[in-house]
Amino acid sequence: MNDSQSAVIPSLTLNNGREIPVVGFGCAFGDWTGKDEMQGFRPEESWRPMTLALEAGYRHFDTAFCYGTERHLGDIVGRALAEGKLTRDELFVTTKLAHPPTPPHVAISHRLTWDWRKVDDLAARVADDFDRSKEMLGMGHVDLLLMHWPGTFENQDAGFAKEARLAIWETFESFVERGDAHSIGVCNFTQSHLDDLIEAGRRVPAVNQTEYHPYCQDPELLEFCRSHSIIVEAYAPFASGAFGLLKDPVISEISEQLGRSTGQVILKWHLQQGRVVLPKSGNAKRIAQNLELFDFEIDEEQLARIDGVKPSEAQRSAADPTTVL
């Protein structure tokens, strides 16, 4: 296990004073862009990539209750902990709760996703799921807990949506108070969703994890988060391999100029603009390559050119959070 590699990954300071490594390993496996019909999550595909990621030096892992990979991550890091190759303090583990059924449905059972409108006690459901997450991870706490979505897609009642978000968030706050979650944040939240929490006087999320890549940019959301000291995490930083992003001619030209892969250029573009990135790969070479980001820089002109590939409408590999009330 390459401890010297893990030591060189910088961190950002969250709004509660804790640190988050700027590169994490995404633990959602499956195929939701390459087939005519949704394949859904395939946790059995995660064993080798997550093992390779730990060996390559990743110490920040991003999983979720609905991915089905919490047990896999717990087993993989558990072996390293048992063998004395790793300590819990060296890890940064994120998981997520409260994932509704999403269009198209990603073939997850109702035990892992649930319609907020059909749950009698949201706080109890979230608490039960969190207990299950910790059990699967084999951990007494997580470093970051995220609300996976701001609501249920089919819901047309804005008042209910706001009330439900606040109820779940209040439960998340209780996890911080008892030490089970060191930091809490949100995932797929727009500015209006964030406003609901902030205007209610609740704890400001430490993180907003959202799909973000050169073909899916939202400068206004970035500025709003920055103004409230909310770190933006980019999931699907390569658009999950869709839309030909990794072969974009502008990015390809810059990668040739820098002598780096297009993937490395995209990740560096994120990092230089202050975002945390969560690349995922099943290829050992690319897994290692995605950490080799700290010995080169993209100049301002090149950064602007990457910004400029933004299409008129965002191209998303996941569902659109702006459709959630």
Rank of each mutant, 00 (worst) to 15 (best):
V265I: 08
G138P: 02
F175S: 00
I298P: 00
Q191L: 09
P219Q: 05
D89I: 01
K96P: 08
H193K: 02
P104A: 14
G57C: 07
R42L: 13
H270T: 08
P150S: 09
N188S: 10
R132Y: 12
A158C: 09
F25V: 11
H148Q: 06
L73E: 00
E233Y: 10
S281K: 14
H105W: 05
R226L: 11
Y67M: 03
V204E: 00
L81E: 13
R125H: 12
A319Y: 14
T171H: 05
P279I: 11
V204R: 00
S229E: 15
H60C: 12
E292R: 14
Q272G: 13
S46N: 03
D3I: 14
E170M: 04
Q315A: 10
L146N: 06
Y235M: 01
Y215H: 10
L245G: 13
G244K: 09
I231L: 05
H193N: 07
G30K: 11
R305D: 06
A304N: 13
L52S: 01
K268H: 11
L144I: 13
F189C: 05
V106S: 14
Q289R: 05
D121Q: 13
N2T: 06
I20S: 01
E313G: 06
D320V: 01
P311T: 00
L246N: 11
S281G: 06
A7H: 00
G259V: 05
Q264V: 09
V324R: 02
R79V: 01
K285D: 15
V309M: 12
F130R: 02
V119S: 12
T51K: 08
I76S: 10
S252W: 05
P150C: 01
A284N: 06
A161N: 10
D62E: 08
N2S: 10
V142L: 05
D295Q: 02
L86P: 00
Q273G: 12
K310V: 07
T152Y: 03
Q289V: 10
A98Y: 08
V126Y: 08
L112E: 15
W269C: 08
H141M: 10
G34T: 00
P101C: 03
H60Y: 06
D75V: 10
D62I: 09
Q209I: 08
S261R: 04
T190W: 12
V265F: 01
P219L: 08
P10V: 09
E70M: 06
E301Q: 11
A161R: 00
E135F: 11
N15Q: 13
